[in-house]
Design a protein around this nucleic acid. Structure first.
Lengths: 253, 253
DNA sequence: GCTTGCACCTCACGTGACGTGAGGACGGAA
DNA sequence: TTCCGTCCTCACGTCACGTGAGGTGCAAGC
């Protein structure tokens, strides 16, 4: 019953040392130990390892993976869905990079010399600071703001990229919803509103539904946020506001 | 004239420290220093940095990046082409992973329990050992074999993955060539044969054209290699052998 | 003329995710 | 009984930087 480190390492394509490490840092404790102190992994452990490897492949640091996996009440299906979103976003990003390489080749063929900014466009991040500054005016001094700042301070370049990947994937889903004519009160729209709320909770501050409704209002009135969400779809700000309200109402009712 | 560390860091989306590091390890020495000892980067430096960032994004360790960039007579266009190939391969890999996630979701919905092997299929590597063992019988004791073993010993899991990505990308190109009806003697085929040779030179041992012709013979006669190349396209082994011969002949003539 | 501020410099130690032995215990096969 | 393979626990090494500490050069404001 159960599998040894060697076996698990075998079909997961990782080293034994990696499994030891995950045990050390508390990311994956084998469900039991044999008489001789040997690690024994069961099927649930393997499922967890699978999730770990997906998140790791997506570039998450191990402590973040632990937060994701041990976070409040996230079932396996939710993880798989998120992983799929993130993979899709990553694919989109690489596709953009491939396109940039093609453009660079074209430019070379034509003998055009790109400006430095153009050369590195594809690597750019640019905006997060704006958001932080913008939020400061709105939320300065509140608890949400402070927690947000505290968390943001710990984020590196990679974290920002993943954050962007997540919201990019979310945007793609929301646009698809709107193009399919989905109503703000529909199940799918409320689900995306909920995903939006959880995105904020994960990355910035504990965003409960009341605060979320406040943000929703801001997305239609504040020009900067409005511009961002409109870049995904022209009617998105209003649509999202209604979806957030519906989602908040659902939870209250 | 030229750009400062801060400027370069700015539009390349990296930190100043990263540029310092690349200078330290000899990956990117700025073309000059100012009177005060400040680093000055020119347009050629920026081009190099761009290449570095692409290869880094693709997961290459910095010393390998240095080898790639300072390797024998590789012009910028060749780099861009290779980067495009690698990106395409990476996209294909992520697409496979996304498909695997979809399958996992399906399995969960249906309540099916996958075997451990099935769970981790997508992470698997499996084969490199076989190749090494196989090569040993053929090339044991020769200089090529020893150099190959020496290099292989230094490769980690990531290296193998990139190696596979490269050959996967190459396989896709070769299959496309054959599906388009390209002859073994055509320019495109010889170019791919040359790419194949360089792949071996980069990852295993200095494969000059005589040795390459020997390998070509092996690809049609040895069942293991034959099976591998046939998995890309049924007629590939013979086609590749002729292309390699043509390419070797071209260089000799 | 002097401070202030900013972007730059060079050490040099810290970190995350393992790699890589060292030295030893356990259990099945020859 | 002696191997052999797999497992164990330290514990130091590595790679690509992060993160201060402490100092320099130079333009702008007082």
């Amino acid at each position: 019953m159960g599998y040894s480190v060697g076996q698990v390492a075998g079909f997961a394509g990782v080293t034994v040392r990696t499994l030891h490490h995950y045990d050390e840092v508390g990311l994956l404790h084998p469900s039991s130990r044999s008489h001789a102190g040997h690690r024994r992994y069961d099927d649930a452990d393997l499922d967890r390892l699978q999730q770990i490897l997906y998140y790791r492949e997506l570039g998450f640091p191990l402590d973040q993976v632990a937060v994701l996996l041990d976070g409040p009440a996230t079932d396996p299906r939710e993880h798989l869905r998120r992983q799929h979103e993130l993979l899709t976003a990553r694919i989109a990003e690489l596709t953009r990079m491939a396109a940039a390489v093609e453009r660079a080749m074209e430019a070379r063929k034509m003998g055009i010399n790109l400006t430095p900014e153009e050369k590195f466009e594809v690597f750019g991040d640019r905006d997060p600071e704006e958001y932080a500054a913008e939020s400061e005016r709105r939320w300065g001094g509140t608890h949400s703001y402070q927690e947000s700042q505290r968390r943001i301070a710990g984020y590196g370049k990679e974290d920002w990229r993943r954050m962007r990947d997540e919201i990019t994937a979310w945007g793609a889903r929301y646009r698809a919803l709107m193009e399919a004519g989905g109503a703000p009160g529909s199940e799918a729209a409320m689900e995306l509103a909920e995903a939006h709320r959880q995105h904020i909770s994960r990355w910035f501050f504990d965003c409960h539904r009341k605060i979320h409704e406040g943000l929703a209002e801001m997305y239609v009135t504040d020009p900067r946020f409005r511009a961002y969400y409109q870049s995904i779809h022209p009617g998105l700000p209003e649509h999202l506001r209604e979806a957030i309200r519906a989602n908040a109402g659902r939870a209250a009712g």
